[in-house]
Design a protein around this nucleic acid. Structure first.
Lengths: 205, 205
DNA sequence: GTCTATAAAGGGATAGAC
DNA sequence: GTCTATCCCTTTATAGAC
């Protein structure tokens, strides 16, 4: 085949993304990626130089969409609790699509703390601008129990992310097959809302 | 030195445990373990045959204590909410001592789903015997909002474990140094209780 | 652009001397 | 019990032919 180049590059990226984030083969070798894609292993280096750069490219592409969406949600002027609903939707839908991306984030950042800086450091100022005011307002108006920003965010992120990273553990514990577990994760949107605010979400959600 | 055997074996175990679970060097090589312990690499194989068996030994030893403690808590006839307090104490204290043990569990089980079986499978029946009755009773007595066993357990485990596995992420996000983060984790005992039950824990806790 | 061959490095494990 | 030397396998990466 002549000049299949553009397709091959995309094929490799698609395969790597699927292996890393959808099949949970986070430590897939270049050989495994090449075999799965049905291309020669050297082509991975031809297009991406190194395994590491391939990972970086597919990771950035996989999170770009949801990151932009979540940014927009928190910068919007919607009511605070509405923002949380939108966040739950965006986050859980994205993670249903990439069931192992949280494992990837956690293991990559733990094994190389340098990667954390560029990625999460500046989130702090964002948090204080975009969620602290809404949280404070709800508390002052008596619409939710007092809680510090850090604990609220930790509760939210924990209840969203842990069921992803600990999927096999919880699946085994509860005896859920893959389909039941997906359903369980979808149920969690409203469960998490209830626990955070101790009230029912709006009916139209 | 003659007949240092017994000490060497313990030295290797202590070093491995420290590297794996306290320093987060989950993928530490036999060379790294040997160098850190100040012993010859071959001794690891002499005492433990393989790296994998060494891991298994130190992991089992590290969790045995807390596992027994948690089993006893849930089998006891204390009131349900008391059990949860005791669980929070036991779990968080143990994890403060082994900050990376949750990362280890999550990555090991994700990378080899076989390991899950023996370890978490039978927990299901335990759950239904030891926590379901208490949970049901509290709900029926109107002492907490209705929630399914699976979601309650997932909320509890998520809010306990995620701050451990995502330590570098949350630390970066909130700008906490190691000391501040330890303190943050200790605060979480009462935070988690509040979120789960929407009330203050007893004053003597 | 794609392939084969090969370099180069890392890591687990064992044999055998001491 | 402890050490050195060595084997063997896996994996990443590149050179060079086609």
């Amino acid at each position: 085949m002549v000049t299949e180049g553009a397709n091959t590059e995309k094929l490799i990226k698609d395969t790597a993304r699927e292996l890393f984030f959808q099949k949970g083969r986070i430590s897939a070798t270049t050989q495994e990626i090449a075999d799965t894609a049905g291309v020669n292993r050297a082509l991975i280096h031809y297009y991406f130089r190194s395994r590491e750069q391939l990972m970086e490219v597919v990771f950035d592409e996989a999170v770009k969409e949801v990151r932009d969406k979540i940014s927009a949600i928190f910068r919007s002027d919607a009511p605070f609790k509405r923002k949380i609903c939108d966040y739950l939707d965006a986050f859980i839908n994205h993670n249903l699509n990439y069931p192992y991306i949280q494992n990837f984030i956690v293991t990559e950042i733990t094994s190389d703390p340098e990667k954390e800086k560029e990625y999460f450091r500046r989130k702090r100022e964002n948090l204080e601008k975009t969620v602290l005011p809404g949280l404070t307002e709800e508390i002052e108006n008596g619409n939710m129990a007092p809680i510090k920003l850090e604990h609220f965010m930790t509760n939210l992120m924990s209840m969203c992310s842990y069921p992803m990273v600990a999927k096999p553990i919880l699946q085994g514990m509860f005896g859920f097959d893959d389909k039941a577990y997906k359903n369980f994760l979808r149920e969690r949107k409203v469960i998490i809302y209830r626990v955070l605010f101790n009230e029912e979400p709006e009916a139209d959600w």
